[in-house]
């Protein structure tokens, strides 16, 4: 009994000591982003200082954007943050706009954007200028909103391909992409942009609701006929259904390994070997870019409707390291330039 008491005391002390060390000096102490679930703490508003209303759902990524955005804006603007949930209505948003009277509204995520569109339908303008972030294919949806600009959420192909080129020894000159008719315009735009960096984007259009066979046939065409150097996977939920991944994508990609770049981090998995690389938005950088846009609007008379939608400048990269090393002629010196390594 005495011995076990001593053991227990020893273990307890060790735990206490380790906890103290960790709290005092460990990574948690320098974690700038607040934990999920913590409230968005605004600085009290100042008389005469213009306000920026930030509307967003609470998540790890929106919080990262918010921190960076707030840090940049708060010297010049009062940042007023209003989290939204599935219960929030356009009427709630309208009340906030009336109460805060913001010089500009920053809408983060699809829900915030949709609420603002509904608010604009329900109330006659003029509307405060708005900046939209983290909304899916915002450029295609922009026409639904007035006096609004923003930053596209999808990482442009050109950024992805240039990064990929620096990660592998094999050439990246022709990149294949499978898309549905809905995305034909987007792929065309991306083709033009990729050409700037001498990358040819080769599209293969499948039906609106393709089955695994269509995916396999498209991949076979792109790799054997078109001899593409890599495959770029669009963030299209329909093409990324589990059945299509298992019976379509993976069947072909495992037979004929070429670099596959995805836009979802969870698709880079060392057991699945689907995405060999992922290029994801850097949310902290996105906050800074949004702040740039707010400052630009303020200098140019808040004409958001006349300001072009920007492309995201910064990405975070993820790699399936075992797969890339074994099959894709990965450059070891690139390891220091990759944000997350999956192995």
């Amino acid at each position: 009994m005495a011995l076990s008491s001593r053991n227990a005391v020893g273990v307890l002390l060790l735990i206490c000591a380790v906890a103290v060390l960790t709290c005092a000096r460990g990574p948690a102490a320098r974690d700038v982003a607040a934990p999920v679930g913590a409230s968005f703490e605004d600085v009290p508003t100042r008389p005469g200082v213009p306000g920026v209303l930030v509307v967003l759902p609470s998540s790890v990524h929106t919080r990262e954007v918010w921190h960076s955005l707030r840090d940049e804006l708060q010297a010049t603007f009062d940042v007023v943050t209003r989290p939204v949930s599935s219960d929030t209505t356009a009427a709630d948003l309208m009340r906030e706009v009336h109460a805060v009277r913001p010089r500009c509204v920053v809408l983060i995520g699809n829900q915030a954007m949709n609420l603002y569109a509904q608010y604009q339908k329900q109330e006659r303008g003029p509307y405060p200028p708005a900046v939209v972030l983290m909304a899916s294919f915002f450029e295609q949806q922009r026409s639904r909103l007035q006096n609004t600009t923003g930053i596209a959420y999808e990482i442009p192909g050109i950024t992805t391909f240039v990064k990929l080129r620096s990660f592998v020894y094999r050439p990246v000159q022709r990149v294949g992409v499978i898309h549905r008719p809905l995305f034909a315009g987007y792929v065309k735009e991306q083709r033009g942009l990729a050409a700037v960096e001498k990358v040819e984007l080769v599209g293969y259009e499948v039906g609106d609701d393709p089955g695994p066979y269509q995916i396999r046939r498209a991949l076979d065409h792109l790799s054997r006929r078109e001899k593409v150097d890599a495959i770029w996977v669009l963030n299209d939920n329909v093409l990324l259904q589990p059945e299509l991944i298992a019976k379509g994508w993976l069947k072909m990609l495992h037979q004929n390994p070429i670099p596959v770049v995805v836009g979802v981090g969870s698709l880079v998995d060392a057991r699945l070997h689907f995405g060999s690389f992922a290029m994801l938005p850097d949310h902290s950088a996105l906050g800074l870019q949004a702040a740039n846009l707010v400052f630009k609007l303020s200098q140019e008379g808040w004409k958001a409707g006349a300001t072009p939608v920007e492309l995201p400048l910064s990405v975070q990269s993820v790699i399936d390291l075992p797969w890339a090393r074994q099959r894709l002629q990965f450059r070891e010196d690139a390891l220091d330039r990759i944000d997350r390594i999956v192995q």
Binding site: T159, E197, L288, R337
Partner: peptide
């Protein structure tokens, strides 16, 4: 921009 690697996209775009 936050990182020097983000300068190239400014020229590309």
């Amino acid at each position: 921009v936050i990182k020097s690697e983000d300068l190239l996209p400014l020229l590309q775009f």
